[in-house]
C-alpha cells in the first residue's frame, strides 16, 4: 500500500516538474511548481518527516510561491518568446548526455535494491520527524551549521541591497 502511494506521488511530482519547465506562461509554470511542492510534502510524510512536510507547505508553497506569483503579476510577464535553437545538434547532444546520466543513476539505484515491503523501521524512526527531535538535532548536533546559515542569509541580503539599490 505504501509503495503504491509512493509511486503515485513520485509520478505526480515528476510530471508536474516536467510540465513546469515546458510551460511558456510563467504563471502556469508557477502553479505547476506549487503542485510539485505538494507532492514533495506528501513524500516527506511517507518518510515520517512530519515537520518537514508542514514546513514545505507553509514556507515554500505558502510564503515563497505567493511571492513568486506576486512578482510575476507585478511585472506583468507575458509568455516566453520561443527560442529557435540555431544549432539543433547541440540540443541532441544534450539530450543524449542527459539520458545517459539518467540511465546511469537508474542503474545505480536498481543495484542498490529496495528494502522489502513492510520492513520494520529502525528504532525511534517514527519519532524522527517530530518538532521535538528536529529541534533537538538543529540546536544540538547541527548547531554550528544552523548558525552558519544566518551568515549565508546575511550575504544574500547584502547582495540584494548592493545589486538592487538605486544609485546615489
Amino acid at each position: 500500500m505504501e509503495s503504491l502511494v509512493f509511486f503515485f506521488l513520485a509520478a505526480f511530482a515528476v510530471t508536474t516538474a516536467v510540465l513546469m519547465v515546458l510551460q511558456r506562461s510563467p504563471l502556469v509554470s508557477a502553479i505547476y511548481l506549487i503542485a510539485n511542492f505538494f507532492a514533495l510534502a506528501a513524500l516527506y510524510l511517507l518518510l515520517r518527516a512530519q515537520l518537514l512536510a508542514v514546513l514545505q507547505i507553509v514556507v515554500y508553497t505558502g510564503a515563497i510561491m505567493v511571492l513568486v506569483i506576486f512578482v510575476i503579476m507585478l511585472l506583468n510577464l507575458g509568455d516566453e518568446a520561443r527560442i529557435h535553437p540555431r544549432i539543433a545538434i547541440r540540443t541532441w547532444v544534450t539530450l543524449v548526455l542527459a539520458a545517459g546520466f539518467l540511465s546511469e543513476i537508474a542503474y545505480v539505484f536498481s543495484l542498490a535494491g529496495t528494502p522489502a515491503e513492510g520492513t520494520a523501521l529502525a528504532g525511534g524512526a517514527e519519532s524522527l520527524g517530530t518538532v521535538e527531535s528536529m529541534g533537538g538535532a538543529l540546536f544540538g548536533k547541527f548547531l554550528l551549521p544552523f548558525e552558519v546559515t544566518s551568515l549565508l542569509l546575511l550575504a544574500a541580503i547584502l547582495g540584494a541591497v548592493v545589486l538592487a539599490k538605486k544609485k546615489g
Binding site: 549565508l152 544574500a156 547582495g159
Partner: peptide, 13 residues
C-alpha cells in the same frame, strides 16, 4: 556545503 555556498554567494555578488 554551507561554507561553499557562503563563499560562492559572496563571489556572485
Amino acid at each position: 556545503f554551507l561554507g561553499l555556498e557562503l563563499m560562492s554567494l559572496s563571489f556572485y555578488i
